[in-house]
Design a protein around this nucleic acid. Structure first.
Length: 648
RNA sequence: GCCACCGUAGCUCAGCGGGUAGAGCAGCUGAUUUGUAAUCAGCGGGUCGGGGGUUCGAAUCCCUUCGGUGGCUCCA
């Protein structure tokens, strides 16, 4: 990792040369030990990379000149992680100072900061966090050095026994090495692999954010600990930027915008995790559904509609009752027969496949459905539109031969990317999940299918990562996470190969050879579920839907009552041309009406008054405040039509 | 499901060392006839999430239940 600027490089080029090779950008320079020390100090080094291994900064004194050195500062990803980890220690130190009865457990750096889990019977309050933060500032100010010691495991156990830190002992007992490292800073000792910053004074910007429950070792059978989350950055500005980012996230929260823009509602009376789509949300959904259906027909899919409930036996046969019972609702009795509300669409699509004898000539057969399913989710996991109990999957099942598998997957990938990019998602994290411990189907099947998934991604030049053992029991899968404008990842699309269901339902096709063969099934959802996708879209667009999706595309407003008739005429014309328009002839000042429309995030505002009537024009104001000159009505229609066609 | 916090008018929130409720916005009515992010005035609206308890008296204290929020676990 390169952390020093070129300017500094040239400055240091004049320094005395010695055996220690220091990597700067992609070059190496050689420095005298004392120059290196000065160099690292001036660059706010917090650690060193010695021959590729990250070490504490004090190792600088033990270099013999043959090493390759990189200087790690908190500007780099690795450095920031070290910094945050050190701040976690400082937090634990502060907590122990203030609440000596607390037992410490673990405290790593994470994506956006760090946390530390504590065992304490009394919960931490907001005031406690403030006190802890205050104490942390004191520790930072006193510039306590982080001191690393290597001791034997037995010694460490004795040490932590004397400190009463039973969780540390539990961790120690599972460490295989006989030697462990501990770090001490201002009297606070923690079992830790390191590395750490040289001293606490190097912490420039941190903040404690929240308290939450967390199970010891993440196992819900274990004791619930108290986790304090915090974050740290290399400068105050960066911390402030991050806090601003959190504010922005809050502003875009789809639950808040959903209420404000009257898109959807979740009420206690209906039940948790169940969505009422209000007119504004419903129209957006309808447009997405229409788009989805049209594109599926173009892509060679056939549409299906299937029921919401089916005989329980169907779910026994599909295996869902065995594998998925915990997420299924209780069955209901109808005429002494048990029926089940559907958690999946696949068994129905299988029935459609089985509705006639199939020939290899028909394959691949692609069945698509916006299928609403109901799944039990534990109450604590529900979250707005993103995690619900009733949702509509943009589901499809492709039945194909083994030879067709790879091509079909490629087609699905292309299709997925087309659909996602239409909504402005052009950045993806792609994962292939491979065979888990518990699986069905032959090893050969798995290998072939996994290979097909990989090949498809390679041929499309899509970078991906492997998630080993994370596949579903019935087959490997590709998961695509999209990144929104704030660069947050959302799991939506999934492409899964299924060896299980075709087998269980004994579906077949007649091959060229006249014999019966079993088709392979691909199960895929592009948007995942309409609910989740809409939630992501709302946050992605911050509620300001592009014109092709906007619930109201144009709001026509009159300056005063005198202009109502003309406004009506304009409005009627817009509606006649198929636009979703709103007429605002309220007896209010124009500024007020504009404010309302902007708060409702209407993309186009049309204003008509004396001037417009006289010239037979309209004045257009865009959502972002840009004013189009008074223009001809037909000109507006032209602009709008083009934007809608381009899905802007 | 677990831990913590929260639940007052349609919305956002104030009131909470106990004495049966307020504001702004929204809604309705009227005045105003308006030129690019809030014209003025009046009116209506809540058994303070539900249930139970303590008390002469509970939005306020306690218990319980439902729901929400942040996490943990889970996400076939």
């Amino acid at each position: 990792m390169i952390i020093v600027s070129l300017l500094e490089y040239y400055r240091f080029k004049n320094l005395r040369r010695f055996g220690i090779k220091v990597k700067i950008k992609n070059d190496f320079i050689e420095l005298m030990p004392e120059d290196l020390e000065r160099f690292s100090k001036e660059n706010q080094a917090i650690a060193l990379k010695i021959n590729g291994e990250i070490k504490d900064l004090f190792y600088i004194s033990s270099l013999n000149g043959s090493e390759e050195i990189e200087i790690i500062t908190s500007q780099s990803k690795e450095g920031l992680e070290i910094l945050r980890h050190s701040v976690a220690h400082i937090m634990a130190h502060a907590v122990k100072d203030l609440f000596p009865e607390v037992k410490v457990t673990i405290g790593p750096a994470i994506e956006d900061g760090f946390y530390y889990d504590f065992d304490r019977d009394i919960p931490f309050t907001e005031e406690d966090l403030q006190k802890i933060e205050k104490r942390m500032h004191e520790i930072v100010k006193s510039k306590q050095p982080f001191i690393r010691k290597e001791i034997s495991k037995d010694e460490a156990i004795k040490l932590f026994e004397s400190l009463g830190e039973s969780y540390k002992i539990e961790i120690l007992k599972e460490i295989e090495d006989q030697k462990v490292s501990i770090y001490e800073e201002g009297g606070f000792i923690d079992l830790c692999r390191g590395p750490h910053i040289p001293h606490t004074g190097m912490v420039k910007a941190f903040k404690l954010l929240s308290v939450a429950g967390a199970y010891w070792r993440g196992d819900e059978r274990n004791k619930m600990l108290q986790r304090i989350y915090g974050t740290a950055f290399s400068t105050k500005e960066e911390l402030q930027d991050y806090l601003n980012f959190l504010e922005e996230v809050k502003k875009r929260d789809h639950r808040r915008l959903g209420k404000q823009l009257k898109l959807f509602e979740i009420t206690e009376e209906v039940g948790p995790g169940l969505i009422i789509w209000l007119p504004n949300g419903a129209i957006v959904r309808k447009i997405i559904e229409d788009f989805w259906k049209d594109e599926h027909l173009k892509a060679g899919y056939q549409l299906l509609y299937t029921p919401h409930i089916a005989r329980l036996d169907l779910w026994k046969k599909s295996g869902h009752l065995d594998f998925y019972r915990d997420n299924m609702y209780s069955p209901m009795e109808i005429d002494q027969i048990s029926y089940q509300i559907k958690p999946m669409n696949c068994p129905f699509h299988i029935q459609a496949y089985k509705s006639e004898l199939r020939s290899y000539r028909e394959l691949p057969l692609r069945f698509a459905e916006l299928g609403t399913v109901y799944r039990y989710e534990r109450s604590g996991v529900l979250h707005g539109l993103l995690r619900v109990r009733g949702f509509t999957q943009d589901d499809a099942h492709i039945f194909c031969t083994e030879e067709q598998l790879e091509e079909e997957i490629q087609k699905v990938l292309d299709f997925t990317i087309f659909i996602l990019s239409t909504f402005g998602f052009n950045d993806y994290d792609i994962y292939i999940s491979t065979r888990p411990e518990k699986y069905v189907g032959s090893l050969e099947n798995w290998e072939n299918a996994t290979f097909a998934l990989e090949e498809a991604l390679k041929k499309r030049n899509l970078p991906y990562q492997i998630d080993p053992g994370e596949g579903v029991f019935y087959g490997p899968k590709i998961d695509i996470k999209i990144k929104d404008v704030l660069n947050r990842s959302w799991q939506c699309s999934t492409i899964q190969v299924d060896f299980n269901i075709p087998e269980r339902f004994d579906i077949k096709y007649r091959g060229k050879d006249g014999k019966e063969h079993r088709p392979i099934m691909i199960h895929r959802a592009l948007m995942g579920s309409l609910e989740r996708f809409m939630g992501v879209l709302i946050e992605h667009y911050a509620g300001a839907f592009p014109i092709w999706l906007a619930p109201i595309q144009i709001e026509v407003m009159s300056i005063s009552e005198k202009h109502v008739n003309y406004a009506k005429k304009v409005y009627d014309h817009l509606v006649f041309n198929g636009f979703r328009a709103k007429l605002n002839i309220e007896n209010e000042k124009i500024g007020y009406k504009i404010r309302q429309a902007i708060l409702n995030k209407v993309p186009y505002i049309v204003i008509v008054g004396e001037k417009e009537i006289k010239n037979n024009t309209i004045t257009v104001r865009k959502r972002d405040g840009e004013n189009l000159e008074s223009i001809d009505f037909e000109k507006l229609i032209e602009i709008l039509m083009k934007d809608i066609k381009d899905k802007k």
